[in-house]
Design a protein around this nucleic acid. Sequence first.
DNA 1: TATTAGTCTATATATCCGATAGAATATGTA
DNA 2: TACATATTCTATCGGATATATAGACTAATA
Lengths: 152, 152
Amino acid sequence: MTKIIVCMLSKKTQYSILALVRLAREYEKGPVLISSISESERIPQKFLESILLELKKTGYVNSKKGKGGGYYLIKNPNEVNLADLHRLFEGAIALLPCASTKFYESCHHCKDEETCGIRSKIKDIRDETVRMMKAISLADIITRENDLLKTF
Amino acid sequence: MTKIIVCMLSKKTQYSILALVRLAREYEKGPVLISSISESERIPQKFLESILLELKKTGYVNSKKGKGGGYYLIKNPNEVNLADLHRLFEGAIALLPCASTKFYESCHHCKDEETCGIRSKIKDIRDETVRMMKAISLADIITRENDLLKTF
DNA sequence: TATTAGTCTATATATCCGATAGAATATGTA
DNA sequence: TACATATTCTATCGGATATATAGACTAATA
């Protein structure tokens, strides 16, 4: 009975970041095959298809059919940040719905939200987390990768 | 088909915080009945029982059976922080298992963890989140609550 | 005409979440 | 000892969600 590690990002979000970073590396170099992304990032192809489709609907990527086709990034790698991706695939960034701005909902448990200490503290965390995630773009990830490659 | 808001904290964690804050308010004032916590915090009693049991096993609270019994906090309210509670009920704080220290696991997707830009950036977020959550104790929540009550 | 993405359906497992019910056990007190 | 009170343990539940896999057919493009 091994304890399962539950992390916050689903496979879907994780795969979408991997795929987008890959596409960011090929930014403005033409379409990339689904099968190529699937192989290089080790993402189940059918699963990847549905993810890319979602990313297309949301305006991150576009696709071209036929020979020489594939997917390509349409947003600038500087403009795609982790906060937006998280909100797209996971929903709220706040730890409690009552502390969320984009996905606000009452938590139904405090008598008065304005004076709820838990909510207030959780909001502090959310503010800072959003700030950090907004500050991380695809371009930043690639830059960090290049930096790390130099030191190893 | 209303979109379900997915937040990061499960009811279990939320309830455990509520229950502990309640017990922190009665710190060193003797045991509190499960039924009393259940009512005041509006937590389903049976669910609360299993939560308190888990909190007892982990050394946060203790219980007394029989008349005049109930649950009481054994740790100092200053020493119980959100980071530890999160780890107990939710697991890792990091967004990806490969970026976690307490619940580390390979993510099986980068070729080289040491030079993975995603992992590195996610680690940055984790470090800061842990720092913030460690800094929020039950006592802090109660203090914040009292502060808010003054201004409203 | 070969290639590649898009759409659709269907299936499958696995896991988790929130909650409930009832029996068993321990404690304090009269 | 007997009783009331309270916690402990076990077990189960429906429903939702996550993570895929498979196949068939359509549409676009070089």
